[in-house]
């Protein structure tokens, strides 16, 4: 756990843009995550969440162009050559993917993979295997010694995701990125994984970034939230501020649409008309303007300013006043 800066900042993303040819998937994203903090990135499909996740681990899709900085423990993974990026993955940053089935090799046992993941460790092989077993026990796999001899298909969905979390934490990374960690799971398993991540945040001294479209996961797990729309961060604040005092019309609409948010029953569920715009190129002005119920003429021509509404709470909108 060395390398974190004095103010506890583990992750600092500054003006990050990623484009695929003419598609500007991510535009000028800036965010930070501090030690022992869980931050949430929320938005719908096509908002650039996964592009951001792949940039955080220095693994952009082939053909992607990255600009800006992604500093993990003070080292910029964007500027680093591939060799240095590889050294950072695992030790500085690790990722939990949505589908644990495809994040393990199907023909190797869990034990083989979890010991291989420690290839930079000085420990002898037997000690690495013991560490792997201890980590599996920590994430709640019953009979971890037996699990080491299993292949990933032999585990249930919930157990696979636990194994993926164990794999990500093996090298004690400063930053853990979880991309839709519970989307593939039943609600009871989802609750258990949320519970596990909550426990781990206290033990694990790093920062956790959770990327999800599910507001329930944000509400249960995150300290602060960044709301993304069409490749931009449109609002940021504490989870409480975002849920109880959302300022950006997109954040307000997103919360209003969540059936879990609506008390009682309604005759018609609210929706956001139309769809996320194409990003090749993105619309001029505010990208949410075409769907926004309170858009003005200015919103369609001028990019919205980032308005600070409180310490740590800001929204990019012409309508928002401090």
């Amino acid at each position: 756990m060395t390398g974190a800066q004095d103010d506890g900042t583990v992750l600092r993303v500054e003006g990050l843009s990623v484009s695929y040819g003419a598609v500007q998937a991510l535009r000028g994203a800036s965010l930070i995550a501090r030690r022992s903090e869980v931050i949430g990135i929320v938005g719908e499909s096509g908002c650039g969440k996964s592009t951001l996740a792949s940039a955080l681990i220095g693994l952009p899709a082939p053909g992607a162009r990255m600009r800006g900085q992604v500093e993990i423990g003070g080292r910029d993974i964007v500027a680093a050559p591939e060799r240095a990026r590889r050294a950072m993955r695992g030790a500085a940053v690790a990722m939990i993917f949505q589908d644990p089935m495809t994040s393990f090799n199907p023909v190797l046992t869990l034990g083989q993979q979890l010991t291989d993941f420690q290839h930079r460790s000085a420990l002898p092989r037997r000690a690495r295997r013991a560490r792997a077993a201890a980590m599996l026990a920590r994430v709640g796999l019953p009979d971890p010694e037996l699990a080491l001899d299993r292949h990933i298909h032999e585990l249930s969905g919930g157990m696979r995701q636990r194994a993926a979390i164990a794999a990500a934490l093996l090298m004690q990374p400063q930053l853990l990125v979880a991309d839709e960690p519970t989307t593939a799971l039943d609600v009871t398993m989802e609750a258990q994984i949320i519970h596990l991540l909550r426990e781990l945040r206290h033990e694990h001294q790093g920062a956790i970034v959770v990327i999800t479209h599910h507001l329930g996961v944000i509400g249960e797990l995150c300290d602060r939230v960044y709301v993304m729309y069409a490749g931009e961060i449109v609002e940021e604040g504490t989870t409480d501020e975002i849920y109880h005092d959302p300022r950006h019309p997109y954040t307000q609409a997103l919360i209003a649409c969540d059936p879990a948010h609506i008390a009682g029953t309604v005759d018609r569920l609210p929706t956001i008309p139309d769809r996320v715009p194409d990003l090749d190129p993105p619309p001029p002005g505010c990208s949410f303007a075409p769907r926004c119920p309170v858009a003005m003429a200015r919103c369609r021509t001028d990019a919205p300013p980032r308005v600070t509404v409180g310490p740590g709470h800001a929204a990019a909108c012409h309508r928002v006043t401090p």
């Binding site: 609600v187 609750a191 599910h214 996961v217 509400g219 249960e220 989870t239 109880h244 879990a260």
Partner: peptide, 15 residues
């Protein structure tokens, strides 16, 4: 078990 989007109603234990 349903996750609650309201952080003020966070569940402390597992159902």
């Amino acid at each position: 078990s349903q996750p609650n989007p309201d952080p003020r109603k966070r569940r402390a234990d597992l159902a």
